[in-house]
Write a protein that binds this DNA or RNA. Sequence first.
DNA 1: TCTCATCATATGATCGATCATAGGGTGTTT
DNA 2: AAACACCCTATGATCGATCATATGATGAGA
Lengths: 201, 201
Amino acid sequence: MEPVARPPLRDEIRDVLVEGMISGRWGPGDRIVERRLAAELQVSQAPVREALRELEALRLIESAPNKGARVRGFTPADLREVYQVRAGLEETATRLGGPSVPALRAHVARMHEAAAAGSLDGQVRHLVGFHREIVTASGNAVLASVWESLGIEVWTHVSIRLFRMRPHENAADHEPLVEAFDRGDPEVGRLLRDHVLGYAP
Amino acid sequence: MEPVARPPLRDEIRDVLVEGMISGRWGPGDRIVERRLAAELQVSQAPVREALRELEALRLIESAPNKGARVRGFTPADLREVYQVRAGLEETATRLGGPSVPALRAHVARMHEAAAAGSLDGQVRHLVGFHREIVTASGNAVLASVWESLGIEVWTHVSIRLFRMRPHENAADHEPLVEAFDRGDPEVGRLLRDHVLGYAP
DNA sequence: TCTCATCATATGATCGATCATAGGGTGTTT
DNA sequence: AAACACCCTATGATCGATCATATGATGAGA
């Protein structure tokens, strides 16, 4: 038990940045000025820098020495690279451990609901949740952490907003996968891989 | 052209730490005290902290709030997780682009030479080089960077030193792979995957 | 006007100092 | 002796200030 233990400032700052990138406050190419952000958040420059280092490792921002940080731009080709890696990781995950089929069904149902309610945000959240269930169910923590490090959630939000992608059709696309997991189809890994590659522009 | 542009201090500090972990100066579980290291390197605490954040993202150290950083310990089970991910990544790489067979042969030759000369360090360097050639040849920069983020090189050095693993037999193990790449064997991905999984304890 | 050197400003990089927390030691109370 | 509260030290977290670099503005000279 440790009910007090506040999280370090740098973590809150990192979350502010991530949230800002999701909401569109900072878009690709935008400069992130350490001192301005520090002043706005009423903190000093140091924890801001540390948060930026973290986001750099997550490939969400890029920075050059003495030039500062900016939100990473990305081309469709870059996105394709990410999806290729992600597809491989998720295929690997299916070889290590099967996900909970009820959990998958729940995410699909929520995706449908969110689509009906017109909630882009909800759709993305459960779309990501569906795939996250697969990687965490692998039981391989390294795999899960590498998958997270691709920044799937943020990039999905950002690319939907920037490219005006329509995730409506996604919910239905997932049902064949659920069925394949349910019947223990040995081809499910390949199916999943092709499914993920299908996201790529 | 930018012949001057010194690298940021934090990068040098990070390299010192990595080198120290490879050389055995810091072993798993060892505490890394920010102020002591800063004093020793004649720098201040800030860049040391930033270097530690980077190494944390690379999973080379772990840290808890207000508790400080220590070199990550790892069990054979942890290593197995890393190798499973790595095997999947390298298999994915073979689907995206074939490596240079001459380059692979060169690495194998150097592995043999290093083994003959009794140079553990040389063996590891070319062992890693062999696999790095495969992932970089995929042409997918994200894949390569994720692969690097597993800290393959450091962990290979460390586990050989700690577990007294003998890499002598490794050079020969790679020849079937080279041949498979050379003849364009469609099974090379699976072969490579099994090869990498074979490293796991 | 064009070119280039100089300088001013903004900002990243680093520093030294302070604040806050964790862990261990010590003494007091029972 | 055991339990507990208190304090002390080491150290991580954060701050405010300074140093160093990059970028754009200014103006002299051709």
